[in-house]
């Protein structure tokens, strides 16, 4: 039996009167790559953001690495250092160089020395293919490069799991490949990953499991070939038809 890295039980989240998550249960094992797909407003990003408590759940339990994040007595800041997060809008610190983006939290949160932090940062820049851009400012980079720096920044904290919130949705089409390539290598190295994405090809090839969400619940899940290739649920079929063949979706 493999180790459970992320355990979500009965997760509910409401914004005011609107319930966005209506009871989600999920267990993700070490090394598993799970892709979450679904229409906009289905709650998939909220699910991801609840896993590191960027959104405070209304109900349910989140356990990551054996630590219950939903316990009010948990040191959430310490727990978050184990959970890397990559944002749709990159969210690089615009006033810091690429290198400083990678070292600031290592030094101020993990208490690493400057030398150690920089060495870890350079290793991770190497990993995403941007070792030569360490001194650049974020605004000088393309979107694809910024997102790879975003991934490297999260990896520099040596996280146990990585969360990706539509990491390629804000990119020009020709830049998507570089970012997905980095994510694919990360998956091959055995990182536990929860990825909200619209990249069906990536989900099909890299994911161990695909979750289809709609209306705040997981409608269908399983092997990517089954969920994407031969969906059982009507809602999944409708969504995939719209995504995979948008020009004929209205017919």
């Amino acid at each position: 039996m493999s180790e459970i890295k992320i355990e979500i039980t009965g997760l509910r989240k409401s914004f005011g009167q609107v319930e966005v998550l209506s009871g989600v249960d999920q267990r993700i094992e070490a090394g598993e790559v799970v892709c979450v797909i679904g229409p906009s407003g289905s709650g998939k990003s909220t699910l991801l953001r609840c896993v590191n408590l960027l959104e405070q759940p209304t109900g349910g339990r989140i356990v990551v690495d054996g630590i219950e994040l939903t316990d009010p007595d948990t040191d959430i800041d310490a727990a978050r250092t184990r959970i890397g997060m990559v944002f749709q809008q990159f969210n690089l610190f615009t006033h810091l160089s690429v290198l400083d983006n990678l070292t600031v939290a290592q030094r101020k949160v993990l208490g690493r020395s400057r030398d150690e932090a920089e060495s870890v940062a350079r290793q991770n820049l190497e990993r995403v293919g941007l070792a030569d851009r360490a001194t650049a400012m974020p605004a000088q980079l393309s979107g694809g490069q910024q997102q790879r720096v975003g991934i490297a920044r999260a990896l520099a904290m040596n996280p146990d799991v990585m969360l990706f919130d539509e990491p390629t949705s804000a990119l020009d089409p020709e830049l998507v490949g570089d970012v997905l390539g980095v994510m694919r290598r990360l998956a091959d190295e055995g990182m536990t990953m929860l990825v909200v994405t619209h990249e069906m090809q990536f989900a099909r090839e890299v994911a161990d499991r695909v979750l289809f969400m709609d209306g705040g619940v997981i409608v269908e899940q399983g092997d990517p070939a089954e969920v994407i290739g031969a969906p059982k649920q009507e809602r999944t079929r409708g969504f995939l038809a719209r995504v995979l063949d948008p020009t004929h979706a209205g017919e």
Partner: peptide, 27 residues
């Protein structure tokens, strides 16, 4: 300062105060 900056800092384990002083206020 865009809200994503604070979120990114918090997701790296910075406390609210730390994120404010190192990321939000300089910007």
């Amino acid at each position: 300062v865009p809200g994503g900056q604070l979120e990114a800092a918090r997701s790296l384990g910075m406390s609210h105060a730390r994120a404010t002083t190192t990321v939000v206020i300089p910007q």
